[in-house]
Amino acid sequence: MSSLSSQLPSSLVGLDRAALKQVLANIGVAEKEQNMRVRQIWSWLYVHGVQEIDKMTTLSGALREQLGEHHTLERLTISEKQVSEDGTRKYLFKLHDGHEIETVYIPETDRGTLCVSSQVGCTLNCTFCHTGTMRLVRNLEPHEIVGQLIAVRDDLADWHNNESKRAVSNIVMMGMGEPLYNTDHVITALNVMSDGDGTALSKRRITLSTSGVVPDIARVGDATGVMLAISLHAVRDDLRNELVPLNKKYPIEELLEACRAYPGLSNARRITFEYVMLKDVNDSDADARELVRVLSGIPAKINLIPFNPWPGSPYECSSRNRIMKFADIVNHAGYASPVRTPRGRDIMAACGQLKSASEKMSAAERKQAELAAQRLSQPVDIRE
C-alpha cells in the first residue's frame, strides 16, 4: 500500500530534465512529445519563475490539468528570514520532512552571492565551525538544493531582470554540509542552475567549496565545470588534523595534488583557498610563509577569513594587525589574498556560523556561560 506522503502532489520546482521527462511519462504524455514539453516546462520554471501550473500557457489546458492532479509548483517553506544591518539575508527553510536548512544571501555592489547548503547538518566536525557541531541528518536532494535558489529569487523578485541586473548572480556551495559527501545530487543541482536555457548562472560564477574529499574533486570538475574552493585553514597535517578532521583521511599533500589536477585549472580559473584566522593557532609569519610554499605552482587566490565567533567556540579571531601582516607575506609572494569582510554577524549568518534555529536554541540553553563570554568579544571587521 502506498504511504500518504507518496499520494500527495509533489513539486516540479528544482527537478532536472530527466526527472521532468519521467513526470511526463508517468502521466501518459507520448514519448515523441516529451522533449518539447520538457523544454516548455523548463522555461516556465527557470526563466519565468511561475508559481502556478495554470500559468504555463504554452501547455495545453488538458496537460496543465493532468500535471495539476499530481504535481504543484510549491517552493521550499521559509520558516524564518532575518535581515542583517549590512543587508545580508539569512533564510531558514523547512523541508518536507520537517528538517531545516539555512541559506544566506549576500548583496554587494558588483554581485549578489547566494550561499547554498548541500546537507542537513554536517559530518566533518571542523572545530572552528558552528555547523560542524551539528549531527548529520541526511543529504539534500537535487531539487532541495536548486529550491534554495528558486525560493530566494522569489523573495527578491529576481525573475524578470536581465543578466546584468540579477539580484543573485553568484552561487557558492559553502552552506551547511560537505558538498562532496553528496556529490551525485550536487552535480545534478549545479548543472540545473548553470543551464543556459534556465536560470543561466555562469559556471565561472558558481564555486563549490570542499574540505578536501579528494576522490571526488576531479569528478565534480569534469561534470560541472564550476570553480573550486578548498577549506584549508592550516599548513601542517598535525594542526589540520585538529581543525579539519577529514585531513586524517586525505592529508594536505594528497589534497594539493588533487588541486593541481583539477580540470580546467589555469590563471584564469584559479582555485580559492580559504583560511580562517585563529589567534595564536594558525596565524604566525611562519604559517604564512609555509602557506606560500605548499601552494607553489597552483594558480590560486587565498581568502583570509576573520574567525566568526559562536556560542561555546574554543577559538578567538586573530587581531587586525596580525591578519594584515599575514596578508602582506602572502601578497608579496604574488598571491591575491583579500581579507574577507565578515557579513551578517549580527544574525549569525557569517562564515562558519550556520546552524538551524532549533539547534541554536538548544545550544543557547546549554551554554549560557559561553554565550556571556561571546557577547564580550569584539568582532574584527576588516575591509578588503
Results as ranks from 00 to 15, higher is better:
residue 66 Q to I: 00
residue 87 G to W: 10
residue 26 N to A: 05
residue 70 H to A: 11
residue 250 Y to A: 11
residue 316 E to S: 13
residue 152 V to P: 00
residue 49 G to Q: 11
residue 66 Q to R: 10
residue 290 E to I: 01
residue 45 L to Y: 10
residue 6 S to C: 04
residue 214 V to C: 13
residue 46 Y to N: 12
residue 12 L to N: 08
residue 109 T to D: 11
residue 12 L to Q: 03
residue 65 E to S: 12
residue 106 I to L: 15
residue 234 A to S: 06
residue 136 L to I: 12
residue 38 V to A: 10
residue 53 I to W: 00
residue 210 T to F: 06
residue 347 I to R: 03
residue 84 S to L: 11
residue 198 G to D: 08
residue 295 L to H: 04
residue 168 V to M: 06
residue 42 W to N: 10
residue 158 D to M: 06
residue 215 P to V: 12
residue 361 M to K: 15
residue 72 T to C: 04
residue 175 G to Y: 06
residue 117 S to K: 07
residue 203 K to L: 06
residue 197 D to K: 15
residue 313 S to I: 03
residue 290 E to G: 00
residue 269 R to S: 03
residue 335 Y to N: 02
residue 294 V to L: 04
residue 20 L to N: 15
residue 9 P to W: 05
residue 188 T to S: 05
residue 153 R to Y: 02
residue 41 I to S: 05
residue 296 S to I: 02
residue 266 S to I: 06
residue 373 A to G: 11
residue 325 K to A: 12
residue 252 I to D: 03
residue 52 E to A: 11
residue 210 T to L: 06
residue 88 T to I: 09
residue 290 E to R: 08
residue 358 S to V: 03
residue 34 Q to F: 07
residue 237 D to N: 14
residue 176 M to E: 09
residue 270 R to Q: 11
residue 353 Q to V: 08
residue 152 V to T: 02
residue 235 V to K: 00
residue 88 T to L: 04
residue 51 Q to C: 13
residue 217 I to L: 04
residue 217 I to P: 01
residue 192 V to Y: 07
residue 276 V to N: 04
residue 298 I to H: 03
residue 333 A to I: 01
residue 116 V to H: 02
residue 279 K to N: 11
residue 342 P to S: 15
residue 33 E to Y: 15
residue 137 V to D: 04
residue 195 D to F: 08
residue 359 E to D: 14
residue 73 L to Q: 07
residue 193 M to Y: 04
residue 165 K to I: 00
residue 220 V to W: 00
residue 350 A to N: 05
residue 264 G to S: 03
residue 152 V to C: 11
residue 311 P to T: 15
residue 59 L to D: 09
residue 155 D to A: 09
residue 106 I to H: 02
residue 30 A to E: 12
residue 168 V to E: 08
residue 305 I to L: 07
residue 369 A to H: 15
residue 13 V to E: 05
residue 10 S to N: 05
residue 9 P to I: 00
residue 315 Y to K: 06
residue 26 N to G: 13
residue 299 P to F: 05
residue 65 E to P: 01
residue 230 I to E: 00
residue 360 K to Q: 12
residue 62 A to C: 01
residue 84 S to A: 08
residue 144 E to G: 04
residue 368 Q to F: 04
residue 52 E to D: 13
residue 293 R to V: 07
residue 10 S to A: 13
residue 27 I to H: 12
residue 60 S to E: 05
residue 298 I to P: 01
residue 175 G to A: 09
residue 16 D to M: 14
residue 245 P to K: 12
residue 7 Q to V: 03
residue 309 P to T: 12
residue 349 A to M: 02
